[in-house]
């Protein structure tokens, strides 16, 4: 089911949480609402769900205006950040809840409910825990029960609030990939909220970057990474060096710097070489860290204007070994690609 948000605004007292949000999500996408905390992403998710009312604007699901419709009739599945499992019910009863509260006329028979719940629990690989209570589960297990519970009512849209926020790093990695493959298996339009850009880039087919209640950019992960729309997106997504240049400086740039703008340069877009003499050196090597296949090199820029500025460069391990650099070595830099923002 497609989702259209048109001109959504929401204020909490004098604080403007969302500011004229327009967003269109095509059917079957897995979308990440990404932004720093307090940017309004959870509020937006709750407005789509109907758990919160927007001050103005409309919410359209499958082209139908659902703005006034109660959360219980929107046909959405919502997975809460802290799972919100019913603590007094077993895993089975939690998942069955959505089926059992259906009006008598459309409620499945006990046998059907039984089959369906077990099928869902098998889907999330937790059928063996069906008679446990939420307290007896680990974080990752609770998360999957919450997901099975939301899926039981066959929602046309699945909304997940910080789905991996409260999990251990290792569990988180597994669940991310699992959620992604589950999404392609079920093909339910899904939106998840996250403040972790890595998570958004890894899981989502489409990323919406929010800041201060406004959409900064939306698009495929690669699009956002390679062509950030503004300085905020460039700094928020991935690592970026923000550098200021004036004409005299000798760093080799791909183009002449526009006036008054800063260059946003990805660490892997800088080529580094040992300086042949002190005069043409751009930076001094301070330190480096191993990031698995890559090395992150910390440099200090040599400049009469901005001394002490750190520049990060990333390059493959092998390449770094061939350069045979030591701490304190002087190096030259060549910037291959830069985005210019104010």
């Amino acid at each position: 089911m497609s989702i259209i948000l048109s001109d959504i605004s929401k204020n909490f007292g004098r604080f403007s949480a969302l500011n004229h949000i327009n967003l269109e999500i095509p059917e079957g996408e897995l979308v990440a609402l990404l932004g720093p905390s307090g940017c309004g992403k959870t509020t937006l998710l709750r407005i789509i769900a109907g758990l919160e009312q927007a001050d103005s604007g409309r919410v359209l699901l499958s082209g139908e205006d659902k703005t006034e419709q109660h959360v219980s009739r929107r046909g959405i599945g919502f997975v809460f950040q802290h799972y919100a499992l019913f603590r007094h019910m077993t895993v089975f009863d939690n998942v069955a809840f959505g089926l059992r509260v259906k009006p008598k006329k459309i409620r499945p028979s006990t046998g059907d409910i039984h089959r369906k719940v077990h099928a869902l629990l098998e889907l999330v690989q937790l059928d063996w825990l069906h008679d446990r209570f939420p307290d007896q589960l680990s974080g990752g297990q609770r998360q999957r029960v919450a997901l099975a519970r939301a899926l039981a009512v066959e929602p046309s849209v699945l909304l997940l609030d910080e789905p991996f926020g409260a999990l251990d790093a290792s569990v988180r990695k597994d669940l991310r990939l699992w959620l992604r493959s589950l999404h392609y298996e079920l093909n339910v339009t899904s939106i998840f909220v996250t403040h972790d850009q890595e998570e958004a880039m890894e899981v989502a087919s489409r990323v919406v970057v929010l800041n201060h209640g406004c959409i900064e950019q939306q698009g495929a992960p690669s699009e956002i990474y390679d062509h950030p729309a503004n300085a905020f997106v460039s700094k928020f997504i991935g690592q970026t060096n923000v550098l200021q240049f004036d004409q005299q400086e000798g760093l080799l740039l791909p183009n002449t710097p526009p006036d008054g703008k800063s260059a946003h340069v990805r660490p892997h877009d800088i080529v580094l070489a040992k300086a042949s003499n002190d005069d043409n050196a751009h930076a001094v090597l301070r330190d480096w860290q191993h990031l698995g296949a890559l090395i992150r090199i910390e440099l200090e820029k040599i400049s009469p204007y901005h001394s002490g500025l750190s520049i990060f460069v990333e390059m493959p391990n092998e390449q770094f070994k061939q350069l045979a650099l030591k701490k304190g070595d002087k190096v030259t830099l060549q910037i291959q690609r830069a985005h210019w923002f104010h």
Binding site: A49, L51, H70, V71, S72, R73, I76, G77, F78, F80, A84, L85, F86, F97, G98, V101, K102, R149, A150, A152, V153
Partner: peptide, 9 residues
């Protein structure tokens, strides 16, 4: 809220 989102009255 979870109960409501699952369709409960």
């Amino acid at each position: 809220e979870a109960a409501l989102s699952l369709g409960a009255s």
